[in-house]
Design a protein around this nucleic acid. Structure first.
Length: 581
RNA sequence: GCCCCCGUAGCUCAGGGGAUAGAGCAGCGGUCUUCUAAACCGUUGGCCGGGGGUUCGAAUCCCUCCGGGGGCGCCA
């Protein structure tokens, strides 16, 4: 994803500082203080860990020491001497090896309170993706059962990525891709049929637990009871099909309702079957044939002896020569019985997405599907389209832990933990945060005991309480007839400055999260921000009796801005921003 | 065997090549006469899995080994 220069009413401070440094280097060069050389491709500016080293630090002098032949300390001083003035800069200091350390202008910092309040819910609405359309495809579970904890992680990550891309300026669509054909759905229909006959009191044999073709979940008994009530015994002679259709309809209602509980709503539900109805699947195959990537054979060209033996006597299948494009082996697109594998419609689906004109495609996949996307990319490339705009986020698996032991989750057996169960046990906000606050690359242990038992000192409440506290002060102020209008913000102290410094990092957090498709950064940032806030809330009292009225007004203004920041951050994570708890 | 992810405090996890590696929980010791306890203050705790390399500088990049998870189907 290209990072176009961000614009925002509230400044993206790292970029602003980089601009100053670049200007300084160029003007030092034109004045002869520095020799001519190309600017480094990237100049790093970020808040140092140690606050004594300033608000933003730049290590460019060390980067340039070799190319200029100067020692970094002298180089840093030369650059610093040529820095143009800027309203947000308070002081510049050059330290030890060659760091240029910037300190924000204190008055400028405090005045940002007005900017923050005026931007409100659109705080740090960036323009990195302006004019571009993005699509995030996520969840995409087939309607064979309720969403379980494992799937839920992708739901939270996908929706939050969508929110972050929106904040970065993209126009975003959320899509759910599903398949309502295939063996699993047939099994679902057959399973409901058995339950239906059972509900009518007819003699049936319930398949054993280890029967992998039978869905044991209790929800099918509910469906069966309702179906028996609606249709009586009119379906006793029917095959699996009407049962599958009924089960699918009910299942989707449940899935959508569950997702809505955690603030997830898709714009489009894309049925794989439509790719067959439109002819897209076979057109895709024809196009691949025309481009010379297809052959008919019983086994693939590079088959081992073992594979050859396995394939012996099989009718020819249709192969995609993906190994020529970098794949480990070729892939079957059409089985010997004439039916396509999932790979062919998957390629057709992604061609469909690209042809819909999206500039950025994001695909959220579980690690168990991690190998599949490469084949799709080979397919898209083979058809002459640019697969690089498809970005795949692989989510590592969630392991549910209860009593210190792993809880196995199986949709078929029915003893899994559903997302609904989890929401009932905790809350939508807790579930969203816990599934979000981890790098997608990291395996996630979801401790079910902890999620319930310790919900009272959960980070979720820590963050939300910051918003609640701001709301509480402003509510109390209003009831006392106090106003924060026309506040003299220069009356605010160092503690408020600490919060504002942190608050002004939000834009950069959004930019980096969007660029790297890393929504967990927002979750960690939110917690850090609350960690800066709470001590200040303790220390800086607005409505206390001995606070002078004009100071009081400034502090109320500060808490109003703080509330805006917390609300914005909570909304980015799809969480609620409560006024009271 | 091959491919992907992970290995950082007792536990769960952050850390986009930079300065003395962080947070939460757990542990220990304190704080509610206040708009303020789902909160605050103090404190204990690390050969960043091992070994090489690149770099002025490595938890971060490269190689290798060890350990854990996932994937390697004419299933989806």
């Amino acid at each position: 994803m290209p990072l176009i220069e961000g614009r925002s009413a509230v400044k993206l401070l790292p970029q602003e500082h980089i601009r100053l440094v670049e200007t300084a280097i160029r003007s030092a060069q034109s004045s002869g203080a520095l020799t001519a050389f190309d600017l480094p491709a990237t100049i790093e500016i970020r808040p140092p860990k140690n606050p004594a080293q300033g608000d933003y630090a730049c290590a460019v002098a060390m980067q340039l020491a070799r190319t200029t032949g100067m020692n970094p300390f002298d180089l840093a001083n030369t650059i610093a001497a040529h820095l143009p003035p800027a309203d947000f800069v308070g002081a510049v200091e050059v330290l030890k090896p060659g760091f240029i350390n910037f300190r924000l202008n204190e008055n400028w910092l405090r005045v940002q309170i007005e900017q923050i309040i005026s931007e409100g819910d659109a705080l740090y609405q960036l323009h990195l993706g302006d004019g571009q359309r993005a699509q995030v495809e996520f969840v995409s579970a087939n309607p064979t059962g309720p969403l379980h904890v494992g799937r839920s992680r992708g739901a939270m990550v996908g929706d939050t990525i969508a929110r972050i891309l929106e904040a970065a300026g993209y126009s975003v669509e959320r899509e759910y891709y599903f398949n309502n054909a295939g063996v699993q759905m047939t099994n679902l229909g057959n399973s409901l049929r058995v339950r239906y006959l059972e509900a009518l009191g007819m003699p049936v044999q319930i398949p054993a637990e280890d029967d992998t073709t039978f869905y044991q979940g209790d929800y099918l008994k509910d469906f069966a009871r309702d179906l028996a009530a609606e249709r009586g015994d009119s379906l006793t002679e029917a095959d699996w099909q009407p049962f599958k259709e009924y089960a699918e309809k009910r299942m989707f209602e449940i899935i959508k309702t569950t997702l809505r509980r955690v603030n997830v709503q898709h714009n489009i539900f894309f049925n794989e079957n439509s790719l067959y109805e439109s002819g897209a699947v076979w057109q895709t195959l024809d196009a691949l044939k025309d481009s010379g990537h297809i052959y008919q054979a019983a086994e693939w060209d590079g088959a081992t002896e073992a594979e050859k033996q396995k394939a012996a006597g099989k009718a020819p299948a249709t192969w995609f020569r993906s190994s020529a494009l970098g794949d480990e082996k070729d892939r079957v697109l059409v089985k010997s019985d004439g039916a396509p594998t999932y790979t062919l419609p998957d390629i057709a689906y992604h061609m469909n997405k690209i042809n819909r004109g999206f500039d950025l495609l994001v695909n959220i996949l579980g690690a168990d599907h991690g190998a599949q996307y490469k084949v799709v990319q080979y397919g898209v490339n083979a058809l002459g389209k640019d697969a690089s705009k498809i970005h795949v986020v692989i989510i590592q698996l969630v392991r549910a832990v209860r009593d210190g032991k792993e809880v196995k989750m199986s949709t078929r057996r029915g003893d899994y933990d559903t997302l609904d169960d989890l929401i009932d046990l905790t809350s939508a906000d807790v579930v969203r945060y816990m599934l979000l606050a981890r790098s997608p690359d990291s395996h996630l242990n979801f401790d079910l005991d902890l999620a319930v038992k310790q919900s009272n000192d959960n980070p979720v409440y820590y963050i939300q309480n910051a918003h609640v506290r701001c709301a509480g002060i402003l509510r109390e102020a209003e009831s006392r007839g106090l106003t924060d209008a026309d506040a003299d913000l220069t009356l605010l102290g160092a503690a408020e400055g600490r919060f504002l410094r942190k608050a002004l990092e939000l834009g950069e957090v959004i930019a980096i999260s969007a660029q790297g498709l890393e929504p967990h950064r927002i979750a960690f940032y939110a917690h850090e921000l609350a960690g800066v806030f709470h001590p200040i809330y303790d220390e800086v009292r607005a409505l206390h009796g001995d606070v002078a009225p004009e100071v009081q007004r400034a502090r109320l203004r500060f808490y109003r801005a703080a509330q805006v920041v917390f609300k914005r951050v909570l909304m980015l994570m799809g969480m609620s921003a409560p006024e009271r708890m």
